[in-house]
């Protein structure tokens, strides 16, 4: 039997979770996008969040990072309440995110896209990724980061305007923007979606390397196979509520998860035939 990762993590570190979400609710007018969702993230783990379309996955990211105001609930980062902080303060603490719809600075070359986060107060204070932000020349540092994230250094790619880059590079650029801040937590909103199989194949080791560097990751994904390979723990959302939580095997064995993904009728039909 698989060990309970959650309790194992607690025993290992013996400290409180790095991020604790306490009964977050969010209503857009009459639509309850999130309804009392609580969960914990421990340092160094990869938490996967899955769920059907419209189940509130992106809303939860927006609530944690402060991009939208929650109706009720609290977010604790290392025991500190960050519920009412503006997004730039939360990012300044080291909770960074990627955007599902990529948001590069389209008119700037790829490497200039990273000069901007390297210029931020956090990068200046912490030194940024691998301490490069403290060095004078941010242009060189940004090309170093781009190389690490999978841009070929000696090609023309890092110098190309972001609007001309293909999706795969833009997704990496999103991750690179987070890395430039020397983050504690990266929340990846569907970094695998829209990528080809080979692009994903090269992305998975990158995610694993980030985890080894001690970065905590929350990954929102629809590509379950790749997610299950990297994630330590999976949480399932449906209609703004937490359905279940556990290892990938446990979660996929859950009848409610199947029902949420395939529809309850279908599952009953399948069960009948089986």
């Amino acid at each position: 039997m698989k060990p309970d990762i959650k309790s194992a993590m607690k025993q290992d570190t013996g400290e409180e979770p790095i991020l604790r979400i306490d009964k977050i609710s969010k209503a857009f007018g009459g639509i309850q996008a999130l309804n009392g969702v609580s969960f914990e993230v421990h340092k160094g783990e990869i938490l996967g969040i899955i769920g059907p379309n419209g189940s509130g996955k992106t809303t939860i990211v927006n609530c944690i990072t402060g991009f939208i105001k929650k109706t009720s609930g609290h977010v604790y980062f290392r025991g500190m309440d960050i519920s009412d902080k503006p997004p730039h303060k939360i990012a300044d603490m080291g909770i960074t995110r990627t955007f599902q719809i990529m948001r590069p600075y389209y008119t700037l070359p790829a490497y200039k896209n990273l000069v901007i986060p390297l210029f931020s107060p956090r990068a200046k204070r912490t030194g940024g990724w691998r301490g490069g932000g403290r060095l004078g020349d941010r242009n060189t540092v940004s090309i170093d980061i781009l190389e690490e994230i999978g841009f070929e250094r000696d090609s023309y790619v890092p110098y190309k305007t972001a609007s001309t880059l293909p999706t795969g590079y833009l997704k990496r650029l999103e991750l690179a923007r987070c890395l430039a801040l020397k983050p504690e937590i990266i929340i990846c909103d569907e970094v695998f979606s829209g990528l080809s199989m080979s692009e994903i194949a090269s992305m998975v080791p990158l995610i694993e390397r980030l985890q080894m560097e001690g970065i905590t990751l929350i990954m929102i994904e629809h590509r379950l196979r790749e997610l299950f390979r990297v994630a330590n723990r999976i949480m399932v959302l449906n209609f703004g509520e937490k359905l279940t939580e556990g290892s990938s095997g446990e979660v996929m064995a859950d009848e409610r998860v199947k029902a949420a993904y395939f529809g309850s009728q279908k599952v009953e039909e399948v069960m009948k035939h089986a």
Partner: peptide
């Protein structure tokens, strides 16, 4: 300069500036 780059970033998309920990 780098400040000018941030300003151009504000024009291109201010959400990413926020996500980079800077006050738009």
């Amino acid at each position: 300069t780098d400040i000018g780059l941030v300003l151009r970033g504000v024009k291109d998309n201010d959400q990413a500036i926020r996500a980079s920990g800077m006050n738009v």
